[in-house]
Design a protein around this nucleic acid. Structure first.
Lengths: 179, 179
DNA sequence: GGCAATTTTTAGGCTAAACCAACATTATAC
DNA sequence: GTATAATGTTGGTTTAGCCTAAAAATTGCC
């Protein structure tokens, strides 16, 4: 069983950070983690004790820090969920990269196993399938960009559906008060 | 400005609950809210004071509770984000309805305005466009179900891409340890 | 050995959310 | 119209999570 109990978002961040440091330099120190997360060392110690109690990291006072096998599994799960959400936001929804990363970081935490799998598959499908090419356009919203097809039909429908006058920008980032 | 400061997930739940009660019966009472949220009355009073201080509800001790105009806007925003995520999970990712609702409830809270708008558009596009019909299949993952097209090609690629032997079920809901 | 860097401990603070028990108010029933 | 029931509020406590600051402990290194 990988799922011990549910980590808080903060603990997930610690785990993620340790994972990334391990990739760079084999093991982490308190200072590294504190630096990356923007907290002071004593905050890290507290988190480490929790993670250690849950069997996710190898931790002994004053020693260097590594993930346990279980910790590695969990960390990878987190990274994968993050990656899946990030990719979806960027590749499918067309969200700006840095915004996507910021947001994926929060959404990932609440993502179930099933949704994660589906998202993964969906993005893969989306990139693989040679016919389906949906694109985002500020003017028109999403539309399929197949050259052999006249999409004016659906574009019209979408416009009508969202009460948008042709030529009006979609209200992205705008406050709405529609029903 | 609709965005006072950022509500906690808990406060969003209170707001949502009040909104839904208002729909049913014009105004809410402490007991109604407590009942719907599964907390005791005194917990509700505390939350109400916070929401009131933020100008989101009309609240006077011992009186009935309604949303202010601003509260209504915020509540609708929350409901819309919830709806967009719910629809996406169900209609696009093919997630089971009750699971989708459960999960949308958590994800909604972390959703930015932009992602909300994109999701909305995406689902709408997805339902409107007559050619794009992506479907989920336990066996194959996502695939386009256009009859005039042989999708074996992409199905194969997806299979290869996910290291899945043909005929093997995708590992949805299964613990992975892949990289 | 002793200084400097690192880490831990200790003690404390803050916020958010919930509960309980006691009290206050309002509604209802007779 | 008053007693009783239902509803709502208050204040005190608790739990949990996360953080800081200051001081003490440990380690590494010259």
């Amino acid at each position: 069983m990988t799922k011990t109990q549910e980590l808080t978002e903060s603990l997930e961040m610690y785990l993620k950070t340790i994972y990334l440091i391990e990739l760079r330099k084999r093991a982490a120190r308190v200072t590294d983690i504190a630096h990356d997360l923007g907290v002071i060392a004593s905050s890290v110690t507290g988190a480490l004790r929790t993670l250690s109690k849950r069997g996710l990291i190898n931790y002994a006072p004053y020693d260097i820090i590594t993930l346990t096998d279980e910790g590695m599994v969990v960390a990878k799960e987190i990274m994968q969920k993050y990656g899946a959400m990030r990719d979806f936001l960027i590749k499918v929804l067309g969200i700006d990269e840095s915004a996507a990363e910021e947001e994926a970081c929060h959404m990932e935490h609440r993502m179930s196993e099933v949704v994660f799998q589906r998202l993964l598959h969906f993005v893969k499908y989306y990139e693989t399938c040679p016919v389906e090419k949906v694109r985002w356009n500020e003017e028109l919203g999403y539309f399929c960009s197949r050259e052999d097809l006249d999409c004016e039909h659906c574009v019209q429908q979408v416009r009508v559906g969202t009460h948008k006058k042709p030529g009006t920008k979609p209200s992205v980032g705008t406050k709405r008060s529609d029903n």
